[in-house]
Design a protein around this nucleic acid. Sequence first.
DNA 1: TATGAATGAGATTTCATTCAT
DNA 2: CATGAATGAAATCTCATTCAT
Lengths: 212, 212, 212, 212
Amino acid sequence: MTRAITRIQFASMRRQPQQARSKAMVERIIEAGRAVLMRDGYEGFSTNRVAGEAGISPGSLYQYFPDKAAIVSAVVDRHSDAVAERVAAALADRIGDAGPGMIRATTAALLGALGADVEVLRVVMEELPAARNRDRRTALERRVRELVTAYLAARPGATRSVDHTTTAWVLVMAIEHLTVRYVLDRPDIARDAFLDEVVALCGGYLGIPTLP
Amino acid sequence: MTRAITRIQFASMRRQPQQARSKAMVERIIEAGRAVLMRDGYEGFSTNRVAGEAGISPGSLYQYFPDKAAIVSAVVDRHSDAVAERVAAALADRIGDAGPGMIRATTAALLGALGADVEVLRVVMEELPAARNRDRRTALERRVRELVTAYLAARPGATRSVDHTTTAWVLVMAIEHLTVRYVLDRPDIARDAFLDEVVALCGGYLGIPTLP
Amino acid sequence: MTRAITRIQFASMRRQPQQARSKAMVERIIEAGRAVLMRDGYEGFSTNRVAGEAGISPGSLYQYFPDKAAIVSAVVDRHSDAVAERVAAALADRIGDAGPGMIRATTAALLGALGADVEVLRVVMEELPAARNRDRRTALERRVRELVTAYLAARPGATRSVDHTTTAWVLVMAIEHLTVRYVLDRPDIARDAFLDEVVALCGGYLGIPTLP
Amino acid sequence: MTRAITRIQFASMRRQPQQARSKAMVERIIEAGRAVLMRDGYEGFSTNRVAGEAGISPGSLYQYFPDKAAIVSAVVDRHSDAVAERVAAALADRIGDAGPGMIRATTAALLGALGADVEVLRVVMEELPAARNRDRRTALERRVRELVTAYLAARPGATRSVDHTTTAWVLVMAIEHLTVRYVLDRPDIARDAFLDEVVALCGGYLGIPTLP
DNA sequence: TATGAATGAGATTTCATTCAT
DNA sequence: CATGAATGAAATCTCATTCAT
């Protein structure tokens, strides 16, 4: 039934000899996985459902992913990578800036990145067993923390403390969580006001004047 | 469904002797649930295991709890209540204090409360589908937020902003998350240093001098 | 459907409070396992089929057996135990006899025991991965071998060799295999003639006169 | 189904150059099958694994073999043929010999043939469903049995019995099984001693003097 | 009230086989 | 000839929940 249809549709989409086939399949599975994750949540995420959503046979999943967890990971990775890229880029762009500007820009980038796919963010933050995804999350945190540490070290007067590692840890944790919750909980705070608050929080913490 | 819930509410309001048995049972089940949650994690948490750990029959669970989720909730509630109580008490105690002292004391209370049962905290924060437990978490947050809002409103000069709601939201989110992560991730920061950082962060944000 | 029927039939069979229930279930599963093993062979032996044959739900199997292998083992054990018992008994009974009589009696006992359930013997010998059942088979062989070794040691002149261990090994292997194949392959040899041959083979080997 | 069989028979009869490719393929598949059988055992023997081991696509297998069982058969055949050839040769060579010498030589040949590839022997004897391979085993047995029967018939005084068929059956069964078990179980018996025992067993049975 | 045997749907994963290219 | 992606049935096992006793 679906088999012949799938095959035909598939064939009609194909362009490259074999890379395209695999790639399209992986895409399709990840996209289906994302859909299932958002529709049924993590607890309702089953390989059969993903296969159904992707319009393929359950067995076919296993030619592209070793197991169920790998599919979840792929879905999450796609999201994490996008966030990481945007944030790291923003952070790197502003590495030469003065304090408040960089904080605001970075937070804005994070806000934009996280807000771009709130549905996935919600599943990742609220439904996935964090244990399984700690690595991915801490990877970004560590990356950002190191950048911030380096930034602080490069500006001797930029902070009241000399323990830049600790300062960076506090900053990154606070910004990350505030932004995540802002995106997910949608408190009654305007976007600019939120950014102002973050800048105030971090600026006050670092001892830099934040009033432009 | 509603039957067991009724029973639970009922049990918690009564005092009669023969109800002591039910109460003891609820206790036993919650305690067993806690043990299983810590031993096997959320994914390994099954009603059969809880029944086994409690030394009762699986069927008996359903006379005290409507379903599996209710048992998890009860275990988490027990933990949340303890945390909430300690924090609210600390906050109430210091309601008349000046800024820095209150922040430090409250954070210390939270730190103590969360650190008292790291195992459960870890499961709650890292393994439980947060969607199912959002209510409980936000309940405490709201409670604390309202106290902080009131506190800020009572002290006109205590903050640079007039939007106390927003300020309270930022403060509570930041303190909560920093403390949770401090307890769970055990960064290389001494307890007192951590409290200093939190006080610096919040004090700077509120615009109050934090050097005692 | 089958559920209620099963339950009723079951209830009507029950006598003892709870032992009977378990015991009857184990019986039923083993019996069903035997049937499936004989009907579909080892490769067709599936837990679903066993459950179906037993008229119970697949899940119920797992209250009595930890896994599929355990069910196969139970079926085979039942057969092996019967064989072992009969043979060991015959061997022990004749331990004081002179050579030829004992050989003939023991072989006859083995023949009877193996012939009692040819179907199971065939599956055990020809379909089961021997690796899984080596223990059971070698257990009986060892048991018999030790008895034979002791017997030979007790009769200094009973054999041409002094290495009773080797002699026992040869005897047991030969008798076992000949009997198994006699039962399974049904060669055109009368039962008594077969026993005569075994007695001749072993008697000649041991150097004892076998003509009665 | 019949298609691949035809192809195999066909390939084995032809000599043409372009068929060399097919022949090489059959070789490769059989060799890969042997490797998988020895590496993963019979339960781990899958067509995909064989294809992988052979470095070809799973689909290609089906141009040379009708199904999985045929591949197993081919692997086993290769082994059986080698054993059969060696044993038959030894038996034919000694067809004029006196009793003890022939028994010893034949058993030695069997011992050598079986010992040459213990790994395959073990899989064949202990992992393969014997039902599927009975033909091959009984074919050799029958072949040998007929030779032995003829031998016995040609030497009227060579045995105590006149039923040469029965005698041959007993002899072949005993020798075969003893040798297989000797090779597989590695009992603590020296090779020469083992041969002595077999000669003693058979010689005693046949009523011929075995002391050279 | 308490039991616990029984349920049965459903989950993950494997693999012999096909067939369009 | 050869490919190898795709199939899809089937297998083992788990577990929340029920209900007769």
